[in-house]
Design a protein around this nucleic acid. Structure first.
Length: 803
RNA sequence: GCCGAUGUGGCGGAAUUGGCAGACGCCCACGACUCAAAAUCGUGUACCGUAAUGGUGUGUGGGUUCGACUCCCACCAUCGGCACCA
């Protein structure tokens, strides 16, 4: 028997697959289709680490299994290649980001190929390829055309000393990552996408899809639908009203002051009448340094300033109440103003305690001296005039109707979800295909002129005005207006990385189409994606953005269904062997190249699947890798115990059928670890038996093939089985062969197991009682006691309760 | 802080979803083979007992149940996301 040499046989089989293309998907086939998708990677300069192959192997297992089950499988791969790290790397090393990107992609592709994934490489996509981003730009134009893209003032993180806008990640505790200086928030006019217009559908349509529950919950909570009312508070002695959104109109009588966001326009409007405007300005400056995250922290000490000189009137009781500004109210949520009800809102309560503002109890049930009473399900309304005595829920309804009748407010559904800030002041992204003309305003670039190419330039350093680097390239910026032909300027902001990844799965269906983003037939054939797996870190943003774009494309008739993904699952992270997140700075990164070189791709794949619960994060262990290599060595040696004969070995038949069932089910339900454990157990049984027949081995090889495709193909060929393993059919099990006739039934006395007895599956209770009493280990626990109760669960347990 | 999740031997994990806790693998120990080592094969391996079909044991504290890793309540710890990292 020759030795198991993974490096040789893996190269051999990868060459054969390259040549024969068995994993190429067909756009017209009689077979049922199966579209399996994994999140395409960001091709970083560091290359792959062992975390990447985990989800890829998982869906590769599913894809390979489905092919053997007779499906036409689409399992594609591509590159999410625009983004900040590449741009920063390019600036630092003075290499063009396009060159860096190409280099990184080549490395990633070679690494992935060395692991033997069954991707259809003929459909590879790259978001930075003009033939790809042409269609990203096209989608943006459609959004613009339908009024879903608009300009709006939004704050960015601004480093005054570097004079650049920073990503949130580059802001470390309020300071610039590069120079350490203090970061402030600077308002810029940016392109926004109206995702909020789709908020209801993004929640409601979750009913149409099969996502793991925690993903649905995260999506729903992120969108954050809440029902309540807008209420207008008159500003005393003025025309203006101050509008608030509240989910608790039932507590309106308890509102003793108002709080507005530091950026609220009311302040500018009344600046001449505000007595302490300097104090207010000082506070605004402080707030501009904080992130929303810091501002809304519940546990932090409340801060704020009363606006002196203007007051509001509580519309329920006509009382004059003060207006404050505080950082815990955000301009981006609700209306940027709140009615404070300190008796029944935790943050308002803390604020009121600190600044000595009156706290009125309007819902009885708690102790508002100690803390805010926030329950809406229980309690009784008090101190509230005409709604006294109601329960808060009815009072809420009553108040909304009352407000509407009196013209003081109206029912409204509010969302936490905010519109999508779509502008970036960066070079390495898709140019936004719009032109600004003084006469015509914002004019779309005609479709025939797409793509708007990124200009090839030397310098992509940010400008010191906060504009995109593209703003410096005057001969690119200066153009003519497509509408009037007059002089005009191109938009210099680029799109965020999210843009390209919001529709890439559509391009896979028809990646070389130069007339459309993908043909209608291809989209109708492949969509929806049958199974999409990705990290939990993408459950809110990427998933939501791509669902939003898909729904938009559905509305304009481009895609055939309202949801892109029929099923979504999630994997856990692979940590370093010190149990920390793998990162260069922590020095715990494991490169899959090393594992492939030292142990082989099949060992890497088997370990990635065997390492632990697929959905949980787990530390890497080199010893675990060795264990999987040993397993494959033992698989290889099965060739030594092969004997002549037809069919399954009689004594092994039951186990083989059980294993087929177990593996078939586990590979579909993310339980790859126990599927492999079942194969290990079967292997141990083979070895205990001492000999196997060809049919036994054949079935074993097919079951193991999705996990370890190279070694199984090699053994298949070397024992003279016909054709290629990847053309074989997935085995079926026989339910009759799985049943056990005799089982070991555990016998409990008072819930403690005191012995087991052998019984046939359909043994009646009387017989079991008799047999149990005969067993000395059991009967000694029954002696001198009364049997109070007996519980018999056939096939599971027999419990005798004594006193 | 808010939203979501997780917690079981020395380690990764398993448990038919309320019915024998610890499958499978790693580590470790001992034995076989070897001049020796590695590799391989075999045996053992939750903890406390010399031992027992003894006792204890699934983050902590309480509860429901004939029976709880599994259900309920309270708490603690860790991880993911928080809108310009991807």
């Amino acid at each position: 028997m020759r030795e198991y040499r993974p490096n040789e046989i893996e190269k051999k089989w990868q060459a054969i697959w390259e040549e024969r293309e068995p994993f190429k998907a067909s756009n017209n086939s009689d077979k049922p289709k199966f579209y399996a998708l994994v999140e395409f990677p960001y091709p970083s300069a560091e290359g792959l680490h062992v975390g990447h192959p985990r989800p890829y192997t998982a869906l590769d297992v599913v894809a390979r299994k489905r092919r053997m089950e007779g499906y036409n499988v689409l399992f594609p791969m591509g590159w999410d290649a625009f983004g900040l790290p590449t741009e920063n790397f390019a600036i630092k090393n003075k290499i063009h980001p396009a060159i860096v990107t190409k280099r990184n992609i080549d490395r990633f592709r070679a690494q992935l190929k060395s692991i033997g994934f069954s991707f259809d490489w003929s459909r590879e996509v790259d978001t930075t390829d003009p033939n790809y981003y042409k269609w990203t730009q096209w989608i943006f134009l459609k959004l613009f055309e339908k009024g879903l893209a608009y300009k709006h003032e939004m704050p960015i993180n601004w480093c005054p000393s570097c004079k650049v806008g920073l990503a949130n990640e580059e802001v470390i505790q309020g300071n610039c990552e590069r120079c350490g200086g203090e970061v402030v928030r600077k308002v810029k006019n940016q392109w926004m996408l109206k995702i909020t217009e789709y908020a209801d559908r993004l929640i409601d349509d979750l009913e149409l899809v099969d996502y793991i529950e925690r993903v649905k919950i995260q999506q729903t909570n992120w969108i954050g639908r809440s029902e309540g009312a807008d209420i207008d508070f008159q500003i005393a002695g003025k025309e203006d009203k101050l509008r608030v959104f509240t989910t608790r109109p039932d507590t309106l009588f308890g509102s003793t002051y108002m709080v507005i966001a530091a950026e609220h326009p009311l302040i500018e409007k009344y600046k001449d009448e505000i007595e302490n405007i300097d104090e207010i300005r000082e506070y605004q400056k402080e707030v501009s340094k904080k992130s929303d995250f810091e501002r809304t922290e519940l546990s932090k000490e409340k801060t704020g300033v009363e606006i002196k000189g203007i007051k509001a009137i509580n519309p329920a009781n006509g009382r004059e109440i003060p207006i404050w500004i505080s950082d815990y109210v955000l301009m981006t949520y609700g209306t940027g103003a709140i009615m404070a009800v300190p008796g029944h809102d935790t943050r308002d309560w803390e604020f009121a305690k600190k600044f000595n503002l009156p706290i009125i109890e309007v819902i009885k049930g708690g102790d508002i001296e100690k803390e805010a009473y926030t329950d809406i399900e229980e309690g009784v309304v008090v101190n509230s005039d005409f709604i006294n005595g109601m329960n808060p829920k009815d009072a809420k309804e009553y108040m909304i109707n009352w407000l509407e009748e009196k013209g003081l407010g109206q029912r409204r559904v509010n969302f936490k979800l905010r519109d999508w800030v779509f502008s970036r002041q960066r070079y390495w992204g898709e140019p936004i295909p719009l032109v600004h003309c003084d006469k015509c305003g914002w004019v779309p670039v005609p479709e025939s002129e797409l793509p708007v190419l990124l200009p090839d330039v030397e310098n992509y350093e940010p400008t010191d005005t906060g504009e995109s680097p593209l703003a410096n390239i005057r001969d690119w910026v200066e153009t003519t207006c497509p509408k009037c032909g007059g002089p005009a300027e191109r938009e210099t902001d680029t799109m965020p990385q999210w843009a390209g990844s919001s529709w890439y799965f559509l391009r896979y269906c028809d990646p070389h189409n130069d007339k459309e983003l993908a043909s209608k037939e291809a989209l109708e054939y492949w969509l929806p994606i049958d199974w999409y797996n990705g990290g939990m870190e993408h459950t809110t943003l990427h998933l939501l953005y791509s669902r939003f774009w898909h729904k938009f494309l559905y509305d304009i008739g481009v895609v055939p269904g309202p949801e892109p993904y029929a099923k979504r699952t999630s994997h856990g992270m692979i940590l370093g062997d010190n149990n920390e997140k793998m990162s260069k700075s922590r020095g715990n990164v494991v490169n899959p190249d090393d594992i492939v070189r030292d142990y082989g791709a099949d060992t890497l794949r088997a370990y990635e699947m065997f390492i632990g619960d697929f959905e949980k994060s787990v530390p890497w262990s080199e010893n675990g890798v060795k264990g999987c290599r040993r397993f494959l060595e033992r698989v290889w040696k099965l060739q030594d115990i092969l004997v002549e004969g037809e069919g399954y070995t009689k004594e092994l038949e039951g186990s083989i059928h059980k294993t087929i069932k177990k593996v078939s089910e586990d590979f579909e339900t993310l339980k790859f670890n126990t599927g492999i454990a079942a194969l290990m157990s079967l292997l141990n049984e083979f070895n205990d038996h001492g000999s196997i027949k060809k049919e036994d081995l054949k079935t074993f090889l097919i079951l193991l093939n999705p996990v370890a495709p190279h070694i199984t193909e090699e053994i298949w060929q070397s024992i003279g089985l016909e054709g290629y393993l990847h053309e074989a059919s997935w085995p079926k099990y026989d339910e009759e062969k799985i049943k056990d006739d005799v089982i070991e039934l555990p016998i409990q006395v008072n819930g403690k197991v005191r012995g087991t007895i052998k019984v046939s599956v359909d043994e009646p209770q009387d017989k079991i009682r008799e047999k149990a009493k005969e067993d000395p280990n059991i009967s000694k626990h029954l002696e001198g006691k009364n049997i109070v109760k007996e519980i018999f669960v056939p096939g599971k347990i027999y419990n005798i309760v004594v006193k």
